[in-house]
């Protein structure tokens, strides 16, 4: 059974303006699903419908088989980190927040207290147990917000911009936590504008634009589909003009920032390496596009269409 099942969600606001139009996807246990889209694409609206904060006009959401809009038990299977500072009481301590929200997910006071202390240890926050949230750094607050969602050991975790506004070290820590949670079998829905974070973490991706999912694929499939045939050769030294001209004219290569982008098959690679020889090669690999480029290409295609 899928941990999260989203079927044909539709939502309109005001005078019939459809913000989400027939959105479906599912997420399995132990999978990170990146839900990406430009601003106003319907990402947050979809996530709120998944989390039970917004009722869809039509369609269904099932969290571990339960409907979050009809069955309160679904909320005990779900953990959500909302974007920004909306997850914690700033005048309560780290421990108080953990216990408070744990009880709100159906735990007893005693169980919530035990789980809170365990999570503080696990996240390296034990020393800040009795510090008020307003006195914690942004990175620590975000770690605590994630810890709060784990209090009741949910099956599905929704993370809305989990690394937004964090410095590099804090971002890396949060990303490591997400990897650990995936390894433990949690189904994770991740929305972010930081495409490098999505690329690093996700197993599957959906891109939404103007309320519709325009692409859904595994990360590997998506990169393979959009990466051109050919190779990327990174040189340790600059090419001389004559070699450069041959590569441009005879091989149709593109050369930028010390990298030769070579289209075509492996035979052409060996031929091109003969031209480059004896210049030292720093790295060599298949041509590959990143998520940012795929994202821009997909969303631009749709726009022009």
């Amino acid at each position: 059974m899928q941990a999260l099942l989203v079927e044909n969600l539709r939502k309109s606001f005001g005078k019939g303006e459809r913000v989400v139009n027939d959105v479906s996807f599912n997420v399995s246990a132990g999978e990170v699903f990146a839900f990406l889209g430009p601003n106003g694409a319907g990402k947050t609206t979809t996530i709120k419908m998944v989390a039970g904060l917004l009722v869809p006009d039509t369609g269904a959401v099932r969290i571990d088989g339960l409907d979050p809009h009809r069955d309160a038990r679904a909320m005990t299977r779900l953990g959500s980190v909302l974007e920004g500072n909306r997850n914690l009481y700033w005048r309560m301590t780290a421990f108080e927040n953990l216990r408070y929200f744990g009880v709100h997910k159906g735990m007893s006071m005693k169980a919530a207290g035990i789980a809170a202390n365990a999570l503080l240890e696990r996240f390296g926050l034990a020393a800040r147990r009795d510090a008020q949230v307003r006195n914690l750094s942004r990175g620590t607050q975000q770690k605590l917000a994630i810890a709060v969602t784990l209090m009741h050991q949910p099956k599905v975790l929704v993370l809305d911009e989990p690394t937004l506004g964090l410095d590099v070290a804090a971002s890396l820590q949060v990303m490591e936590i997400i990897r650990e949670l995936r390894a433990q079998g949690m189904a994770i829905v991740l929305t972010t504008h930081q495409l490098d974070v999505a690329e690093d973490l996700c197993d599957r991706v959906a891109i939404i634009r103007e309320g519709r999912i325009i692409k859904e694929a595994s990360k590997a499939e998506l990169i393979r589909e959009f990466s051109p045939d050919g190779y990327e050769i990174e040189l340790a030294e600059q090419l001389c003009d004559s070699r450069r001209d041959i590569l441009l004219a005879d091989f149709g290569a593109r050369i930028e920032l010390g990298k030769v982008h070579l289209p075509g098959s492996v035979d052409r690679l060996y031929a091109a390496l003969d031209v480059i020889k004896p210049l030292p090669v720093h790295s060599l690999g298949r041509s590959r596009v990143d998520f940012a480029e795929i994202f821009l290409r997909l969303t631009a295609e749709q726009k022009s269409a």
Partner: peptide, 12 residues
């Protein structure tokens, strides 16, 4: 402060 949505995620 934005915590209202977090309260609405409660199972109660």
């Amino acid at each position: 402060t934005g915590v209202l949505e977090s309260i609405f995620l409660s199972s109660y």
